[in-house]
């Protein structure tokens, strides 16, 4: 009984599987050559709960970063705690500098923005835990100390970077996460089978991540122009270095291996742009105007979309095609859940 409904659902499922097949060369190759049962089993097993759990891991990371920045404690130690251990699991730990303390904010607006974002990322954790109910995963081990030092090294910003040092460093730390969250939810939207109940929530969270990213990027642009107190141009140059690093991690070019730092990356497959300026034509025939790049988007002014493998590559510092589980940088022991 192939009704229109079942046809549509089949189409969604087949499209979803197609999308999953594009997730990683290794998985695709494994399917094509009919080997590695693991890859097959994994692809067949992915459902909406797996996708939401993937998102939950990212929200744990963001919620910990912002709440630590503002309150100096992990989310499970807040006055109204947010659980990190659910469904009988044991939540991981958060690695911090031995001398960690909350950000000593000097700018009231930046502190206000951080506080708002901390609350919203915490709500995302709670919402996903409740929506997933008995399927929700606990928080994996998270690293907010060595991770930023590693990232600073690969992005060419020096050997250490403390995002909790002051307002400016906090904004750069936030910059690392927000655009990635946007591209991750964008990529996940097309994978979600339940367009009635799950998809509306996912696109709603997607928009909020983009609000956060727009807020952070606008604030960095303003602070940088005013002198942060780092010299004018420093913060925006950091954003450009981080965007190049993210793009190179998500789109490694086999003929042009990733070098450290990413100064040589020109990026035919670049999918990230830092805060800078760019010439635009508007309604003229040539590019005679100068535009900011507050929005992280492609030439069609559409936000980037990244596959789960690309997102894993960025947050763990591995190649998108690396074997699961991806481990390293922000998730030293990988993410919890099926997509890892």
């Amino acid at each position: 009984m192939a009704t229109l409904e079942t046809q549509q659902l089949d189409e969604i499922i087949v499209n979803t599987r197609r999308k999953m097949l594009t997730m990683g060369g290794a998985a695709l190759a494994a399917l094509a050559f009919g080997s590695t049962r693991k890859a097959e089993a994994q692809a067949a097993a992915i459902n909406d709960f797996d996708i939401l759990n993937f998102a939950l891991n990212l929200e744990y990371l963001e919620a910990q970063f912002y709440n630590l920045a503002v309150y100096g404690v992990t989310i499970d130690k807040l006055p109204t705690p947010i659980p990190i251990s659910v469904n009988g699991g044991t939540g991981g730990s958060v690695t911090l500098s031995p001398s960690f303390a909350a950000v000593p904010f000097a700018l009231p607006l930046v502190k206000a923005y951080a506080t708002e974002t901390a609350g919203e990322e915490g709500k995302h954790v709670l919402f996903l835990q409740q929506a997933l109910s008995t399927n929700a995963v606990s928080m994996p081990n998270i690293d907010l100390f060595n991770s930023f030092n590693t990232l600073a090294t690969v992005a060419g910003l020096g050997t250490s970077f403390n995002p909790f040092m002051d307002d400016a460093h906090f904004l750069i730390g936030a910059y690392v996460f927000e655009d990635v969250g946007v591209s991750a939810y964008h990529g996940a939207a097309g994978l979600i089978a339940d367009k009635t109940n799950i998809l509306p929530a996912a696109v709603g969270i997607h928009a909020v991540e983009a609000y956060h990213a727009g807020l952070i990027r606008t604030t960095i642009a303003g602070l940088d122009a005013a002198g942060s107190p780092l010299p004018t141009g420093t913060l925006t140059s950091y954003t450009q270095a981080i965007s190049k690093a993210r793009s190179a991690l998500a789109n490694p070019d086999p003929t042009n291996p990733i070098t450290v730092p990413f100064t040589t990356f020109t990026g035919s497959g670049a999918d990230d742009i830092g805060v800078q300026t760019t010439p635009v034509a508007l309604n003229a025939s040539t590019s005679i105007y100068t535009a900011a790049t507050i929005v992280d988007c492609d030439l069609n002014a559409m936000g980037w979309s990244r596959t789960t493998s690309q997102v894993l590559a960025i947050v763990t510092g591995t190649a998108p095609t690396a074997a699961s589980p991806h481990e390293g940088v922000f998730f030293p022991n990988g993410m919890n859940g099926t997509i890892n």
């Binding site: 696109v203 990213a213 727009g214 929005v295 002014a301 979309s305």
Partner: peptide
């Protein structure tokens, strides 16, 4: 549509 939605949200936040 999701890509445009993101861009509109960046704008709104800006």
């Amino acid at each position: 549509a999701a890509g445009i939605q993101a861009t509109e949200a960046y704008h709104a936040a800006e």
